[in-house]
């Protein structure tokens, strides 16, 4: 029995453990998984003096309400999140990108994300979790990862096997920037679409549908007309691929996507914009902007340098 643990009073809507994800498994049908918004995942770990690849609790929209029991420990929340910290007689509103210390009996109540989708809760220590293929990331579709591959549930107890001795309080001034245009690289079936369809793709606005989850983001808007074939022979997918099925509404593959698919690929989201893409909540407007491969590579390098600088400053 561990002396340090969390009890889940309310699990939230889609609350899972996530880490850096798992690779080398696409060929057997297992996707990457891992934290959807990688930058916010890394910052959360850094704020509580964890290794950067430690597991965190990821939540979507409404987060968990938990009660902590055990020795003093630090925690931090990242994203654009509203949450409360309850200690004995007081309840305060917490701020993202700051670490706090909690002790036996304290509660963290993550009310909701604010005009975004995912938030992260990191605790300064290590959860006691099952690893599969070097990752504890939960994939609820294939029941892979920690917690038997299932979302966190009410009444569950989660043990910590280790608590960080470094309990320095940390803070950073990071602000999640909203993005107006999602940059995309032309897909391998771009020429399956009519001239009008291609124009619509790059010039019109699409709306993020409610039917979006860790597997994919469905978009609604003007239909994109296919003039060649609405099916292709099934082939591999990667995250960020934008497929257009026969109904003309694009679907963007996200971290838990099916590993192969048979719809034509009109484009692929540039890696630099992935973290911000996944944060677009239902109802948000998306516009796509074409970018070439070499610009996409350069922009990702800059984004990665920025992430490393942010982490160094914490």
């Amino acid at each position: 029995m561990s002396n340090n643990y969390l009890d889940i009073i309310r699990p939230g809507i889609n609350t899972t453990f996530q880490d850096k994800g798992r690779d080398h498994l696409y060929h057997i049908g297992i996707p990457f998984s891992g934290a959807m918004d990688n930058r916010n995942y890394l910052i959360a770990n850094k704020l509580v003096n964890n290794n950067l690849d430690s597991a965190v609790i990821e939540f979507a929209y409404q987060g968990p309400h938990i009660k902590y029991s055990g020795e003093k420990i630090n925690f931090a929340v990242t994203g654009d999140v509203i949450f409360l910290i309850k200690k004995k007689d007081t309840e305060i509103e917490g701020k993202c990108y700051e670490s706090y210390q909690i002790e036996n009996g304290d509660e963290i109540n993550i009310i909701s994300t604010n005009k975004s989708v995912y938030g992260y809760l990191a605790l300064g220590g290590e959860f006691d979790l099952k690893f599969q293929w070097n990752s504890c990331s939960i994939n609820t579709k294939a029941n892979i990862g920690s917690n038997d591959g299932k979302k966190l549930d009410v009444g569950q107890r989660i043990n910590l096997k280790k608590i960080n001795s470094n309990k320095d309080i940390k803070k950073t001034n990071y602000i999640n920037t909203k993005i107006e245009n999602i940059r995309v690289i032309k897909g391998t079936n771009f020429d399956y679409f009519s001239e009008e369809g291609k124009k619509i793709f790059y010039e019109k606005e699409f709306t993020v549908s409610k039917l979006s989850d860790r597997m994919g983001m469905r978009l609604e808007g003007p239909k994109i007309d296919n003039i060649v074939n609405t099916n292709i022979k099934s082939e591999g997918l990667i995250k960020g691929v934008i497929q257009v099925p026969a109904d003309g509404n694009p679907i963007i593959m996200l971290s838990d996507h099916g590993t192969i698919g048979g719809y034509p690929k009109i484009g692929v989201v540039a890696s630099v914009d992935y973290d911000r893409l996944v944060q677009m909540s239902p109802g948000s407007k998306i516009k796509f902007k074409e970018i070439n491969l070499s610009d996409a590579e350069t922009l990702f390098k800059l984004y990665e340098m920025e992430t490393q600088n942010l982490l160094l400053q914490i």
Partner: peptide, 13 residues
């Protein structure tokens, strides 16, 4: 980090 063979394509990510 990943290889996805299919009928007549190989995707290497």
């Amino acid at each position: 980090n990943n290889l996805t063979p299919s009928y007549n394509k190989l995707i290497i990510s």
